[in-house]
Design a protein around this nucleic acid. Structure first.
Length: 419
RNA sequence: GUGGGUGUAGCUCAGCUGGUUAGAGCGCCAGGUUGUGGCCCUGGAGGCCGGGAGUUCAAAUCUCCUCACCCACCCCA
């Protein structure tokens, strides 16, 4: 039996973890400056939470969730996204009435049973930021401003912000009727899937990539033109905010997000370097979701960044992990001594490479040279007998003899490190 | 879920229309003065050619099945 990782799930090996950590560290340093605090939540939730939150007829809920029954008979689901869950957290802990809203971020794995491809995995990772309990307007601009600045700090290169407003429940209803009427007249030109959408979720037709559908949709009424007074002025406020932050964006009335909870301002950040999966981040308002999940009616907004996609774009390079000292040991006695010495030095704060493999001194130096170590401590039978060791500085090749007893003091000083 | 592509050494790949010992580069190991690196030279180890079935005197090469990965559709981050 040969085992391998589950399809669509990746091992992140040491050569990649450095980059992951840079992005994660950057987020943990960056978002708090904007008033966001980190939260961590379980991977499992009651299935019902996602069905109610994301929407029964969405693809995510219909065919992509990892759902199972646990030993007590409950239907559980591995979270396919973070927003619905964070609403649950918000409601469960009654975190309402925070001045300025409850501002949080989280990062971790999400699960969706899709066919893997470039930038798409079954276990993937997101960085998520949410603001709950604050109405549309400046927060949205603040949030998007933070997002764009963060992506820039991650050195993602050229990306585009797409912006739209879907309108609130009320204006969406009126708009929806208009759109359905428009599409019904042209129904025979739509693809099969869109005819189905027409009944269940007509807004999604706007999003269809079929050329035939796109041709029809091109002239369809736009949601942004059918906003109620309140939504109109809110959207206006968001745009003004972005303008004053000098955040560039493209208004795109065909931007419809695939999760049902989005209302009002929605946005997406795309890159042309990602192939078919071009969105590195998606987000928007979900003013009705908190109530849907059992809380009070409270407005909210947020976004999710796909970390794998972010890394595909990022030029960040982790600094090389250079070791301070390589233990070159000749003979069993030296290896024993090397173990003891390196342990002490490591506790003292030095990064020491210990590879007891009985190789020749030449081979050991070769190895030390290749890995870019700063110095080598040579332990041979004769030195040990004299209670000494030879320290060789790699750059320049300078050598000196040191007493074994005082290595803890002398070595850190020579290598310019605090003991 | 639907298409297309690719599976040969640790890694990146070459092996044309089937022909006998399956190759290269990198990496690894060893030697080139017995205990002194990065370069160079020489040698070496390492492959059920993804798995299974079939065609054939003969299969890495052809056919079928299967699995995995990749890309696109779809969906989304």
């Amino acid at each position: 039996m040969k085992f391998q990782a589950i399809r669509g799930m990746k091992d992140i090996l040491p050569e990649e973890t450095g980059q992951w950590r840079m992005v994660e560290d950057l987020a943990r340093e960056f978002f708090p400056r904007f008033g966001f605090h980190e939260v961590r939540s379980p991977i499992l939730e009651k299935t019902e939470l996602f069905i109610r939150g994301i929407g029964e007829t969405t693809d995510v809920v219909e065919k992509e969730m990892y759902t199972f029954t646990d030993r007590s008979g409950d239907s559980l689901t591995m979270r396919p996204e973070a927003t619905a869950q964070l609403c649950r957290v918000y409601v469960e802990h009654k975190l309402y009435n925070q001045p300025g809203g409850w501002k949080v971020f989280t990062m971790g794995p999400m699960f969706r049973h899709e066919r893997p491809q470039k930038g798409r995995f079954r276990q993937f990772h997101q960085i998520d930021a949410e603001v709950m309990g604050v109405d549309e307007g400046l927060v949205d601009a603040e949030l998007i401003g933070m997002l764009v600045a963060f992506l820039e700090a991650c050195q993602v290169g050229r990306v585009t912000v797409r912006l739209n407003s879907l309108g609130c429940k009320e204006c969406r209803l009126a708009y929806r009727e208009k759109l359905v009427a428009f599409l019904k007249e042209r129904e025979e030109g739509l693809c099969d899937e869109c005819r189905r959408r027409l009944e269940l979720n007509p807004l999604r037709v706007l999003d269809c990539k079929q050329p035939s559908c796109q041709a029809i949709v091109k002239d369809a009424p736009s949601s942004a033109d059918h906003l109620c007074g309140k939504c109109e002025s809110a959207f206006e406020l968001v745009r003004r905010g972005l303008d004053s932050l000098k955040v560039e964006y493209n208004l795109d009335n065909r931007l419809v997000r695939g999760l049902d909870y989005y209302v009002g301002t929605t946005f997406e950040v795309v890159s042309d370097k990602l192939g078919g999966q071009d969105a590195v981040c998606g987000g928007g308002r979900y003013d009705d979701l908190i109530e849907e999940v059992g809380g009070p009616p409270q407005a909210a907004t947020g976004f999710a960044i796909g970390i794998e996609r972010l890394l595909l774009l990022s030029d960040l390079e982790p600094p090389p992990e250079e070791a301070d000292l390589f233990m070159a040991m000749l003979g069993d006695q030296a290896e024993e001594m090397g173990l003891k010495i390196s342990h002490r030095l490591r506790l003292g704060g030095l990064k020491v490479v210990l590879e007891a493999e009985g190789k020749s001194l030449k081979a050991q130096l070769r190895r030390a040279g290749k890995m870019g170590v700063r110095a080598v401590l040579i332990l041979g039978p004769e030195e040990i007998k004299a209670g000494q060791a030879v320290l060789k500085i790699m750059e320049g090749g300078e050598q000196q003899t040191l007493d074994l007893d005082s290595l803890n003091q002398t070595l850190p000083r020579i290598l310019h490190k605090k003991a």
